[in-house]
Amino acid sequence: MTALRESELRTAHLVASVLLGYPDERLYGARQVLAEAVATLPAGEVRERLTRFLDHAAGTVQSDLAAHYVATFDLKRRCCPYLTYYSYGDTRKRGGALLRFKHALRAAGFELADGELPDHVAVVCELSARGAVREARRLLQEHRAGLELLRTALADERSPYADVVAAVAATLPPAGRREQEAALRLAAEGPPAEEVGLEPYAVMEASR
């Protein structure tokens, strides 16, 4: 795999941040610009997967892609785009984990909209695109198990978004044994839960 230069990482993460957001006019109005940006990346998995998603979007009615986005990311907990959820669920410990993301965003002068959480994959990718590449990649790497589980869950759902998450994962060093084992453990057990937590994956999946 060809290592991307910092400018190429910023480009790849910028495109991914747009593609992993809700597919509104921002995405559909910028498809050509995004495609041109992806074309500047070196040949490889990142470029191939981002191009594949853009091709899918080009052939999909906006309302249909929006409906798929909601059905996938909002209604399937295994496809949660918030990275700290995989390690901490909705437990109190998640608040401390979110602070690391908030501090990284604040240090980069990145202010979130009201109600937006800082650990959304799209937000972390935008952090990189704004120039905080090292900080964003560190956060992604620290939550690599959750990222891999998200990628696998999207692939199982045959979602085109699996390509975008796979492209983001491909900008990181290859997953080590510890990260692979953590992803398998999360897949088997689901995130931690407290008495106010969410149902395990198995319960949610059975009710679909």
Rank of each mutant, 00 (worst) to 15 (best):
R10V: 04
T11C: 15
H13V: 02
L14G: 14
V15N: 00
A16M: 08
A16W: 02
S17Q: 07
L19A: 01
L19K: 00
L19V: 00
G21V: 06
Y22Q: 09
Y22V: 14
D24R: 07
D24W: 05
D24V: 11
E25S: 07
R26M: 04
R26G: 08
Y28R: 02
Y28F: 14
G29P: 06
V33D: 15
V33I: 08
L34R: 02
L34G: 06
A35M: 02
A35R: 01
A35P: 00
A37M: 13
A37L: 15
A37I: 05
A37Y: 03
V38L: 01
T40K: 14
T40L: 14
L41M: 09
P42M: 06
A43T: 13
A43R: 15
G44K: 07
E45D: 13
E45M: 09
V46Q: 13
R47S: 12
E48K: 07
R49T: 03
R49M: 04
R49I: 02
L50T: 01
L50M: 10
T51V: 10
R52G: 10
F53V: 00
F53Y: 09
F53P: 00
L54W: 02
L54R: 00
D55W: 01
A58K: 06
T60A: 11
Q62W: 04
D64N: 06
D64C: 11
H68G: 07
V70C: 02
A71V: 04
A71I: 05
T72H: 12
T72E: 13
T72I: 08
T72K: 14
K76H: 07
K76Q: 12
K76V: 15
R77S: 13
R77A: 11
R78L: 14
R78N: 10
R78G: 13
R78I: 15
C79G: 10
C79Y: 05
C79V: 09
C80Q: 10
P81K: 04
P81F: 05
P81C: 09
T84N: 08
Y85L: 15
S87T: 14
R92T: 08
